[in-house]
Design a protein around this nucleic acid. Sequence first.
DNA 1: ACATCACTTGCATGCGCATGCATTAGTTTC
DNA 2: GAAACTAATGCATGCGCATGCAAGTGATGT
Lengths: 135, 135
Amino acid sequence: MDAEHWDRLGALHTRVEQELAKALQQHHGIGLSEYRALARLARADDGELRMQELADLIGLNQSSVSRLASRLESSGLTRRDLCPDDRRGVYSVITDQGRDVHEQARPTYDGALRAALDAAAADGHLGPLVASLRS
Amino acid sequence: MDAEHWDRLGALHTRVEQELAKALQQHHGIGLSEYRALARLARADDGELRMQELADLIGLNQSSVSRLASRLESSGLTRRDLCPDDRRGVYSVITDQGRDVHEQARPTYDGALRAALDAAAADGHLGPLVASLRS
DNA sequence: ACATCACTTGCATGCGCATGCATTAGTTTC
DNA sequence: GAAACTAATGCATGCGCATGCAAGTGATGT
């Protein structure tokens, strides 16, 4: 895995993420980070996670997650809940509406992922890489 | 390759790219896109590429590349050159100083890539993925 | 003339870094 | 032991930056 191969992987990543983002934005009005946060919350116990946990799980830093939670909150997809035993802590909790949006968006996401990978596999430059990832 | 695997690949990508960016910024005062543009220009014929070519090669928008070229230009690493036979076109051309910076930065980039991948390989969650990429 | 192409520019968005505020934990002092 | 200081932790906010999209500018071709 040299710089050349990493470049190709980056190209693949960029393309696929762009397609995923476009599909989610178009069909559900949410971004990629929003979707991933909802997905993590949906499978968490009680649908809630501490901010920093969420940050680690979706690979964003703490401040980005704070703003992300604000966006989700103002869309009614999550709410904030104070941690009872440590009043510094805040839970981000998925709402019923958030679960609905996630349920509806999941097939969009999965489908767009398959489509994007298929398209990349047909690309002469990226095809072999995709094939090796799928094996 | 389902959503779960794609998530892991994204996590790996994010981590490694961050390390690469940090290393380049710290040791050479340039960002990742700047480095990649220099690398592409350095190996192009006469060290020059049309804007759109460069955009395709590094996976950025054409408008982003226009701004990227501006940044490189104001740092003296590239210059713009009008295309003689098609006056709509603009070449971005690497300067001697740009080649120097690229030569100096390349080992930093390659070393940071190796280090980041080694670190990820040691991670229980990402290790298998890195191993499969390296095979 | 009109459409197209290559690039630039205005604008909005999402991100990371540095910082600040509130809370908690640990340590010293009396 | 209680009060007071000093970190350390969890999150929010100000700021700047790179990016994408959409509209604009100028050159080319038909």
